[in-house]
Structures are given as structure tokens and as C-alpha cells.
Nucleic acid binder design. Structure first.
Lengths: 345, 345
DNA sequence: CCAAACAATGTTAGCGCTGTCATTATGCTT
DNA sequence: AAGCATAATGACAGCGCTAACATTGTTTGG
């Protein structure tokens, strides 16, 4: 006769943490009642609930999400995958997302892909393992394997930043292309004729802005390929300075430079200060995104303000609607953008 | 007689995702073998493993981490709680942490406390529910409830950024106070006599830098309280400009201003450019952290370089040692800092 | 005053996976 | 040839929790 209870503790109970059963045993009640005391307080008698909470605190009880997820088939996790944390754009989006998800009891799981589609793929896989109730992704284009996996598992997905015209794709953003075009047209309206476009990182959003730029210049009959400077390196303020130098070698008569984001543009402003190029008299400079610093630079930076926080908020709301099987009015929400004319152009 | 199998599917199997059992059934083998094929490939015959992987791909199988965590009492999760994502300092630390954890199969769970100890407390609680194998925290001081919880659960904890002399506290960082003192002494050595300290956010690290500043000036017999400007607002470039204005009202004869971080200092540089105050001739400016932009500003910014990435790397390594019950040589690692004298002072 | 509704708690089973301990087949040593 | 190690697979139980249903006791409406 082997004593069953002897076999009990062969396996490490998860680091000896207190469980619902521990609390229940101490109070001589059943564990389901303890569970209810936390999840459904109204269903447990006031007085008993207080005693449960007291014992729970004494024991340092923390609920085990893995067990809860497994039992309820609801993880309350939302996976969010973004390309970079060094880019304030995505941080703003995250804050928007978090503002909606946290109060509703969802836990955001954050993945950073470093602008690599391989990593993106790996992250989707890794976070699907957390059994998320939904996923938020930062772009529209994924590798076939990723799309296949997402379809198979059937998890609701919302895409941010860009717009899609496909029927079953849910997205919140604005037209990057239109924004690029708007800025270029603004520069044209200001009388600039030899307008350059300088870009780095070259993700799909950057490329879309470039298309908008090209469009506007072609329409105006002023497009010149030598004024396009695009490099794959990650954006930074220092890179903005270097690219300005290269641009001025490559096309010295340029009278306005449209940088694909504010980081590069700020670096260019510094480089101009260093080289004593007066902005905008000798060279106009424009950026994209309206980061918080861009209103403070000298000269202040002409740019396009993008509704990043709102994209996060509305994206999260759309995802919650999908999760709770409510109807989603529109599968695409265009939040637009705003031209910010300032001193630099 | 109730048909047992009829009762089977009453509960939603987690969104109908494929399970190990599904794969096993399809191949006429047992699920434990499928599990081994993924976790312990050497233990399963080559040929069988290939068939398993093929079927898994077909079904879009993704392992269920909740189940795995529950069964193995090892979550492979590491909770990391930081005060802010808008601050490049913490992003650099995260990159360091991730570099170590990812290849070892750990999943980093990120929480942002917005510099609030209430939120910090709530986050510790929320992430303990993920049954983390370890926790990385950004400071040393926690509310009693948090400390109590961490002790009760016995999860290994590593603190970053600051140093502690307490025996059982594990931390990786540098002395914020010494760094503040070093910068102040550098300014003194450069001949500045009326040195101000401007700070925002006022977390424990900022305050420690302030103590270093005060120390140095008191020792030099040059301390003057009216040159200390400290506000609780979150740091930003715009705030740096405003604080410079206030400082110059409050103490117009100041000849050097030490800002508690580079964001503020950069804002001050812009404000000087705007007001045509020449830096460093009329006013010297110094920052802290050596953010990537700080070498590119005009004039370039004198600052203290902090080993952020390395703090992340070494912190993560220390935590892994604790988790795997290896001996940890030192419970405190001081990574130092480096003065970066540049044009602004 | 009784049936029906409700409030408070309990019983049972199972979510998907893995630790532990078999079991069987195969090779290898002396 | 006997004995033993090793390789490949399987059976079983249980991690901590919760959905579904069951069981009490108590209230309420007519």
C-alpha cells in the first residue's frame, strides 16, 4: 500500500506559492468560493468575503493567471507588436492602447520587432502561445506564414498606422501617402521648386510617404530623381545630419528638404546650424510626426502632426469590439493628419 | 445512462486551437511524444519528429503557454517594470535585458509605472500573476505592501540603476550621487562659480544627483539654495526651455546650469538659441545620460554617459544566475559612468 | 402557508501540458 | 548467451483554476 499523500509533493508546486485551496483550507470552505470572492464579489456573503481577503493577504496570495487562462479559455491578454521603442511614435500609440485596455482588465503583452519581418513572425508565434484574446499589429503586410498562422488560430487582429481597402482587414490609421503629398504640396505652395525627400528605415509607411512626395512633384512637373535620398539605416538625429550633408553634395541646389520623420529633420536642423546654413532662407526643412520636441527647436519645425495616441485608443476599442463580438461599424477608421506650418519652411 | 462524450464539449476548448492531442491523434501516437518532439527533439526518432512537425504546421499548432507553465511550474517569464517608455534611458536598458533573455528562451513581460508607486505596486501584483521566474525593477524603494508580496512569493528580484549596501538586495547600476558630484566638480574645475541645478520628475535617481551637486558645492563653499530649481513635472524638451527662463529670473547671475537629464538640457540649449544667449560664453549648460542626440546638438552637450545597455545586460545575467541557483559573486555591480566634456561647458 | 424564486455555497470535471515512472525493443559487452 | 545499458515510446496523474450544475437554506408573492 503506497500512501497517496506521500506522492503528492513529488512535484514542486509552483514555487510554493499560496493557492486558492490554501486559503479555502484555512477557512474550512471550498476553493470555488474563494475564487468567487475575487471574481464575483457580489456572489459571496460580505462577511465571508472579508475573511477571505484577510487570509489571502496574510498568505501573500496572487492569482495564477496560467491556471485561470487554462480553465476559463479567456486569457485577458492582448498582444501588441511594434517595430521599435526608440521611436516616440510607437510609444504614444502604446499609451493610447494601454489607456483603453488596462481599465477593462486586459493585460498588454508587448513585442518589439526591430523592423524585421522575421522577428515579427517569431513574435506573433511567441505571443500566440499566450493565448491572447486579440492582437494589435503595426502594419499591413506580413509574411505568408504569419498570415496563415493568424488565420488558423482565428484571433481577432487590428492593424494600426495604415489603411487598407480589403474587406476583412480591420485597421485604424491615416493615409501615409496623402500625408506625404500634403506636405510636398505645402512646400510647393510656399514657392519651393527643388524639393528633396530624405528617408531612412524604409518601412512601408516611409515608402508610402515617399510615393506621396513623388506624386505631388510629378504633378507639378518638378520631380527630379537625384533629390531622393533613401537609406535603410535606422533613423536617428545623428543620421539626419549626415544625410543632409550627402544631400547637399548630391543636389547642392536643393531649396527644401522633406525628411520622412522629425528625428532626421532635427538632426538636419543641427547640421544647418553647424554649417551656418540659414533655415529657411537658404534651405527649408520639413519633418513628419510632430514629436514633442519639434515645436521647441530653433527654428521650430514644419511638420505633419499624426494622431498617434488616438490611433492607439481607437485601435484598442475596435479590437475590444471584435473580441466581444459586437458589430464593428467600420472596419477602417481614417483619423487623418494635420499640417503644422512653422518657422523651418 | 448519460453519454459521457456528449458532455465533453460543453466548454469551449480554448478557441478551438489545435492541441498536442490533436496532433497525436492524427498520427496515432501519444501526446507526450509530440510534446517531446518540440521540447526535447533528441528524444524522438528523427523520422517521427518530421511527421509531427509537418502535421503541427498543417494544423497551425501553437503551444499553449498557460498549460505549459501550469504543468512544469516554470513560466519562462521575466517581469520587467520601468517608469517610462518616453525616456530613452529605459528603452536602452530594455534592449540590454532583451539581448540576454530572448536567446535563453525567456519571455520579457513589460510594465510601465509612469513614475507612480501605486502603479508600480499594481504592476508587481499583476505580473506576479504570470508566475514569473524572476523580476527586474528599476529602483530600490518600494511600498511596504510590494516588498511584503515579493518576499512572500520568493521570486528572485534584481534592481537596476541604483546601488544598495544592504546584504540581500541584488542590484546593478552606478552611484547617481557620485555622478552628480562629478559633473558639478567638472564645472567647478572649469572655473564656473555660480552653478545651478535644474531638475524635474524628482524620482529617487534625480534626487540623488541633486545630493551630489549640493555636496560638491558645499565643499567648495559655493552652495546657494536659490540656484536649485526642482519641479515634479515629467521631463521634456519643452520643459527644459521653460525651466531655463525661470532659472534666469530667479538667479540671473548664474554662469552654469546642470540639468538633471539631457532632455531638459537640450530644451535649454534651444531656449538659449532663441534668446541669443551664447553657450557656453554667457552660460554653460550640462546634462545627464548622454542620449544619442546630445553629441549632435549645437553646441554639443557636456553630459555624463551612463552604461544603460550594460546595466540591462548585467542585470539580466544576474537574475538568470539567481533563477538557476548559481552563486552570484557580488550582489552589487557598480558599472560606473563617464564624464563627456563637450562644447556646451 | 406553500410554491417559486433567490442567495450562498459546494461537487465535479477538465482546460493542455509535462514530470515521473513504466514498457518495449535494440544493441553491446564479456 | 546472458546480462545490462540505451533508445524510443507510452500511461498516468496533477499543476491551479473555473464553468456548469447541484444542493442547501431563506425569502417572497399571492
Amino acid at each position: 500500500m503506497v500512501d497517496k499523500s506521500a506522492k503528492r509533493n513529488v512535484r514542486a508546486s509552483s514555487s510554493g506559492r499560496a493557492t486558492l485551496d490554501d486559503i479555502a483550507a484555512k477557512l474550512g470552505i471550498s476553493s470555488i468560493t474563494v475564487s468567487r470572492a475575487f471574481r464575483n464579489p457580489g456572489k459571496v456573503a460580505e462577511e465571508l468575503r472579508e475573511r477571505i481577503i484577510k487570509v489571502a493577504d496574510e498568505l501573500g496570495y496572487v492569482r495564477n493567471r496560467a491556471a485561470s487562462t487554462l480553465a476559463s479559455a479567456r486569457s485577458m491578454n492582448i498582444a501588441v507588436i511594434i517595430p521599435s521603442l526608440s521611436n516616440a511614435v510607437f510609444v504614444d500609440i502604446l499609451n493610447g492602447i494601454d489607456k483603453i485596455l488596462r481599465p477593462r482588465g486586459y493585460q498588454m503583452l508587448l513585442g518589439v520587432s526591430h523592423y524585421s519581418s522575421e522577428e515579427e513572425d517569431a513574435l506573433v508565434r511567441a505571443y500566440l502561445a499566450f493565448d491572447p484574446d486579440g492582437i494589435i499589429l503595426p502594419s499591413l503586410n506580413y509574411r505568408e506564414a504569419t498570415r496563415h498562422l493568424l488565420e488558423k488560430t482565428g484571433v481577432p487582429v487590428v492593424h494600426l498606422m495604415e489603411l487598407s481597402d480589403q474587406p476583412h482587414v480591420h485597421c485604424v490609421g491615416f493615409s501615409q501617402e496623402a500625408a506625404g503629398k500634403t506636405m510636398t504640396q505645402h512646400l510647393l505652395a510656399k514657392g519651393y521648386k527643388r524639393i528633396a525627400f530624405v528617408a531612412s528605415q524604409l518601412d512601408s509607411r516611409t515608402l508610402a510617404r515617399g510615393r506621396g512626395y513623388r506624386d505631388a512633384l510629378v504633378e507639378a512637373g518638378l520631380y527630379d530623381q537625384k533629390r531622393e535620398l533613401m537609406v535603410p539605416d535606422p533613423s536617428s538625429i545623428a543620421l539626419g545630419g549626415r544625410l543632409l550633408q550627402r544631400l547637399l553634395q548630391q543636389a547642392p541646389d536643393t531649396d527644401a528638404a522633406f525628411f520622412c520623420n522629425d528625428d532626421l529633420a532635427q538632426g538636419a536642423l543641427f547640421e544647418c546650424a553647424r554649417q551656418q546654413i540659414s533655415v529657411p532662407a537658404q534651405l527649408a526643412i520639413a519633418g513628419f510626426n510632430d514629436l514633442s520636441a519639434s515645436a521647441s527647436t530653433v527654428p521650430s519645425l514644419t511638420t505633419i502632426a499624426t494622431p498617434r495616441f488616438d490611433i492607439g485608443v481607437q485601435g484598442a476599442n475596435m479590437l475590444l469590439s471584435l473580441i466581444e463580438h459586437q458589430k464593428v461599424n467600420r472596419s477602417t477608421i481614417d483619423l487623418g493628419f494635420e499640417l503644422k506650418p512653422r518657422e523651418s519652411a
